[in-house]
Design a protein around this nucleic acid. Structure first.
Lengths: 98, 98
DNA sequence: TTCTGATACTTTATTTTTTAAAGTACTTGG
DNA sequence: CCAAGTACTTTAAAAAATAAAGTATCAGAA
């Protein structure tokens, strides 16, 4: 009964944009909204929405501050997020085979 | 401007269930509806829908025949599907890093 | 100084996907 | 024959992704 265990693939991470965000964030300490936007090519709206989902899942920590009067958002992986990322990668490898 | 090129990730393949189907089909010559269902754990409805999407994309060839009076469906990757699969894997590797 | 365009976001609405539910058709075991 | 199971498809409902519009600030040009 050795199934291809699809349910083990983390939904939250699997979405394309979020996958890109996680991949990028896994390689840096933190990143700004603008950096994430440039790296992933996402629209503002998309980025905002998906960043929030990752935040709600506890995978990224989003910090909002002001530079002068302009809002400035930075994101970084949480410990939980890093773990989820590693797990996701493991599952993917298993799924994709040898 | 070296972006994480998310758009290069094939939408059709990326969906979880279809990813599982492609992964499984890439390792066998062909498979029956029942085998695919067992391997992926998908419900009948889901499998039917996603199999059709893969078919519409030209990635799998679905053949329907009768064994006695019962319908029997088998699926196998097309050449195009195999290529798309390899491309997908390449893109994924690139995205996920080193 | 006032207008224009750009940055930095969020919220809401629209569309697309995914999943779940129900339905059809046939077969097999009791 | 009847109940239960296989093998699907179709339709409807839920969830997700994308796009559009809106708020607020800033920076440069007229």
């Amino acid at each position: 009964m050795a199934e291809f265990d699809l349910n083990a693939l983390d939904e939250v991470i699997h979405g394309k944009l979020r996958l890109g965000l996680m991949a990028f964030l896994s390689g840096v300490d933190h990143a700004s909204f603008a950096e994430l936007k440039a790296q992933t090519g996402a629209s503002d709206g998309n980025l905002s929405v998906h960043l929030r989902k990752l935040e709600e899942a506890g995978y990224v920590l989003v910090e909002k501050s002001f530079i002068g009067r302009k809002p400035h958002t930075t994101a970084k992986l949480t410990a939980e997020g890093r773990k989820a990322w590693i797990d996701y990668l493991d599952q993917l490898k298993r799924l994709l085979g040898p």
